[in-house]
Write a protein that binds this DNA or RNA. Sequence first.
DNA 1: GTAGGGTTAG
Length: 619
Amino acid sequence: MTCNSAGRFCLSLIENDRVVSKNSKHFNQILSHSIASGLFQDPFVSSKLLLLSLSLSHSNANNLHFPHTLFSQIQNPNIFAWNFMFKAYSHSNTNTNTNTTSSPQQCISLYNLMRRRFELFPDRHSFPFLFKACARLSLSHKGQELHSLTFKLGLQHDVFVQNALLSMYSFCGLLHNARQVFDEIPLSVRDVVSWNSMVSGCIQGRCYWDALKVFDEMLKCDVNARPDEVTLINALTACARIGFLDMGRKIHGLLVRNEFVLDVILGSSLVDMYAKCGQMENARKVFDTIPDKNVVCWTCLIAGYAHSHLFKESIELFREMQARGVTADAATIACVISSCGHSGALDQGRWVHTHCERSGIHFNLSVKNALIDMYSKCGDIQRALKIFHALNLTKRDVFSWTAMITGLAMNGQSDEALNLFSQMEMSGGIVRPNEVTFLGVLSACSHAGLVDKGFHYFNHMTQSYNLKPRIEHYGCLVDLLGRANLLAEAERFISAMPIQPDVVIWRSLLFASGSHGNIELAEFSAKRIEELEPKKCGAHVLLSNVYASASRWSDVKNMWKSMSLQRIQKLPGCSFIEIDGVVHEFFVADDLHCQMDSIYETIIRINKVIQAEGFDPEI
DNA sequence: GTAGGGTTAG
């Protein structure tokens, strides 16, 4: 074959690239011919072949070895060839142990090579890939350097370049810069992608109100860029994160009016929005209309029930999902395990745990944290500790530490809880305790009656960590003082608090004063509760218990009389226990359980044992 | 004569 005929052969096949791109044998033939004939050094031919090699390795997205070799054989790659390589590397995986060349870092290295050795400038097609690589590597400095180059090259009005630039800034956490880029794109140039990138950038930066402001602005001022599905998904996400139901409803109306197709992603966003706003009925309604529900969609609803403290429903829905053949992933599992923990369903939680181990579901940190929390809440502190200690020190996040500290505290192991907190602080500042961590620490102090330590940690929290105490922290301290019979101090502490005390605080004081026989203070606290919750029976019942323990029976009687006069009904106290995966519920004076006789027999037997040990149980 | 962006939901 002569050079010319080889050239014609190559070109005709290259032009027919739909055939070639599916057949590597064809491709290899063309490549050999082009090299043998010297046609490979034609810039058009080499870049076209490079593109073909990339589309052939497309099924194996991270194996860019062959295209890279091919690229390195091009003596003077044109901008097309460079851009093909930028594109491939900017999308490739960051961590591939087997092939270290597949990473966005390669994109940047190649760019540097292009500038230094070949003295070529990037063009409008290069920038989106280069910005993508910077974003994925959090290389904001490189991104800024490229930003200045766009001015030099007069690309400040190229909407592709500008959109990629603004996404890069928000990805790197520089929301302010992103906003500046956005503002500088003229309205006539801005498209729906510009708006979506800005909204999504605000969400990434956790500025949900700003996200909705941008969305609102888009609806009002830009007739050229109508919201698309991505816009609505982003806006719904923002509503979900801040629980903004009114706006969420408005978006729901908008998507119905504009006849958007409710696919699984838009549907899930809507379910999530309603669920996060506590509207479980609406969430369920939307959920039922979504075709081809996937695991994310189910998890939104499962998590929604848990968010609304409907743990039983959350676990039941998980079972239903499995029955429908949808495979759970780590997010689902973390959520269900947490529901098991909150409802005390240890057997179910344990079942989920083993089920995951057997079915090879990846245990990410959220799952492990949920397991620590569940086992602690269900009293299996050894299991919780085992999982916690198996976690590498550098892997533990604030939730792992907090779950374990709180778990130890609620299981009466206050010293261990406080020890663990010291370990957390000594772990080199990798993880900073948050408000919830300190709740665990304070409750450990409260359970062990460590008054001074409790106040020490309270000050430590505000002074060393600059954390603002919430009402729950004040509640812990009131509890701490109350349990230690420092009732006057507790009262003083409440009146000096910078926040208005809530019923929990007064209930805590009522309980403490009752158990230490200070009826006057108990009455005072009950009054405060009644002022805050006039319709509820809590204060009446607690106070009548106080009277009863002081044998003031006429007061007990009056208490109940006034309750019936005010038509306040006492909700029956309820407790539950899980045995062999079944949750058994008991109400006060309940005789509905099928094994009631043997249950009461056991209680009487236990009481006898307790009395024989010299205790006088209060029944 | 080749090519470009926002992957958006738990």
